[in-house]
Simulated scan of single mutants.
Amino acid sequence: MAATTFLDTPQGRRLAYHRTEGKGPWIVFLGGLKSDMEGTKAVHLEAWARAHGRAYLRFDYSGHGESSGRFEEGCIGDWHEDTLAAVTALTEGPIVPVGSSMGGWQALLLARAVPQRIAGMVTIAAAPDFTEDGYWARFSEEQKRRLLEHGRIELPSDYMEPYIVTMRMIESGRAHLVLRTPLALPFPVRCLQGTADTAVSTETALRLLDHADCPDMRLTLVKDADHRFSDGPCLGIIENAILDVLGEA
């Protein structure tokens, strides 16, 4: 496997990435919260892109994987800046973001920032606005009090070790919400969602589908698929969704 390369961003962060040259549009994998570019989906899609001669980029947000910084120091806005920096410096021309979980939110923020560059989009268990709707709205009064007083709390996870939620993450999330204001997606979008996902609900997927202004948006529900969405059949569904938005299915 090729050695990891690093990008220094305008904000002074150092992002680890793997970049595969090929025909465009560039496929850009955007990972989830506390995931990294060595995850099953990211690595599988790189191999698939290389086998088909397609341009592909996977990278680690700051505080994730091999990139600089600590996870608990980061927030939605930082990772949006990281995504913009990576896309700007490491790709050219049209792109197809493939966003998993929090990466789905990042894909939507990317579409707002550089709509002219998006050729299509695939989301996998997209979690837009989760800091507000999944965290803050469900926190007990005691959790909110501790967060406001101490600036951080620890939450358990079904998919990883407990992680830290900071007040900075909540506040940054509020500054980057996408389901409260118009969301124009003037390109093909394919949303994938497992019915056994305990981290992101099908209601979230339906809310995004209903909210977005998109002429060609489809939601595929996969029975019994969980949040990882990374077994063999699910990986094939992701491949087909990418081909679909490219008009090659």
Rank of each mutant, 00 (worst) to 15 (best):
M1N: 07
A2W: 07
A2E: 15
L7W: 07
G12S: 09
R14C: 08
Y17M: 07
G31D: 09
K34P: 00
S35H: 02
D36A: 12
E38I: 02
L45S: 00
W48I: 04
Y56I: 02
L57D: 04
L57G: 00
R58Q: 06
D60W: 00
Y61T: 04
E66F: 12
S68F: 06
G69F: 05
R70L: 15
R70C: 12
F71R: 00
E72H: 15
E72C: 12
I76Y: 03
G77H: 09
W79P: 01
W79S: 00
E81S: 14
E81A: 15
E81Q: 14
D82H: 08
A85C: 11
T88Y: 04
T88W: 06
G93F: 14
P94Y: 06
V96K: 01
V96C: 07
S101P: 07
G104D: 11
G104S: 11
Q106N: 13
L108S: 03
R117V: 10
I118G: 02
V122I: 12
P128M: 06
F130W: 13
T131F: 13
E132S: 12
G134V: 06
R138D: 12
R145M: 13
E149G: 03
L155D: 03
P156M: 08
M160P: 01
P162L: 14
Y163W: 15
V165D: 00
V165T: 04
T166N: 14
T166I: 07
V178E: 03
T181D: 13
P182T: 03
A184Q: 15
L185D: 00
P188E: 03
R190G: 02
Q193V: 09
A196I: 13
V200G: 00
V200H: 02
S201F: 04
T204P: 01
A205N: 01
D210H: 12
P215G: 08
P215S: 10
M217F: 14
T220H: 14
T220Y: 08
V222W: 10
K223T: 12
D226L: 03
D226P: 01
C234H: 05
I238M: 05
E239F: 10
L243W: 11
L246R: 03
E248W: 12
